[in-house]
Amino acid sequence: MHLFPQIMEFAQRFGYKVVLADKQNWYPDLTFVCEENESIKFAVDIKTTFRRNGKTAGFTLGSHGSYFKERNKSKNIQFPYNQYAAHYCLGIVYTRNEIPDSEQLNIYKTEEIDATQSMVGYRKVTRVKKLESIVSVIKDFDFFV
């Protein structure tokens, strides 16, 4: 959720729109479609996993099922596989934080966290300025493409 505004701003800056997968189990998570030439598409699949005892728990890069074997089909994929100029995986590895006991947490109302909304492309983005009071449940991120 925190990365999505940056992804939208990136797409907008370079003349792309972002198409989200119609269904949760479809490939890819994000499709970047060129606004000037909609035949130019890039697939971005987001994969996350956590560290356990100093080791990465692991994740799959997808089954690449029928859409990989039959590249002109549209089963379980946003657009046929052969319509994409390139396929990317954004990998995110993180460490889980210990969650504090509920009595240690402060509860804030929405207006107390100084949230503002703006539009990035056709999506509404909420920015929260007072994050120091929000306990994160994950930390130590590693990103790779």
Rank of each mutant, 00 (worst) to 15 (best):
C34N: 12
G65T: 09
N76R: 05
I77C: 00
E111F: 13
F68C: 12
G91S: 11
I107H: 03
S136Q: 04
E98P: 04
E98Y: 13
E111A: 01
E98T: 12
F42V: 12
F14Y: 15
A11N: 02
S102M: 10
K109T: 10
Y94T: 07
L30H: 02
S39P: 07
V135K: 01
V120I: 13
M119N: 01
N82L: 14
E103I: 10
E111K: 10
L61R: 08
E112R: 04
P80C: 09
F10K: 04
N37C: 04
I107E: 01
K73R: 13
Y108F: 12
E9F: 11
G15R: 05
K23L: 14
T31K: 02
H64E: 07
E70T: 12
A21I: 01
F4V: 01
G58Y: 11
L131N: 07
F42K: 06
H2G: 02
T49M: 12
F50R: 11
K130F: 07
T110N: 02
K55Q: 15
E9D: 08
A115N: 04
Q78C: 14
S39E: 06
Q12Y: 09
Q117T: 12
G62M: 08
N37M: 05
Y122W: 15
T49C: 13
H64I: 13
E38D: 04
N53T: 14
K41Q: 08
R123N: 13
A43D: 01
N37W: 04
V33E: 09
H2A: 01
K129N: 13
V137H: 09
T116V: 11
M119V: 06
T110C: 00
T49W: 02
I138M: 03
E35Q: 11
K17H: 13
N25G: 04
K75V: 14
F59L: 07
L90K: 01
A115I: 06
A43N: 02
P5W: 03
D29A: 03
S136N: 06
T110G: 06
Q104T: 12
A115S: 06
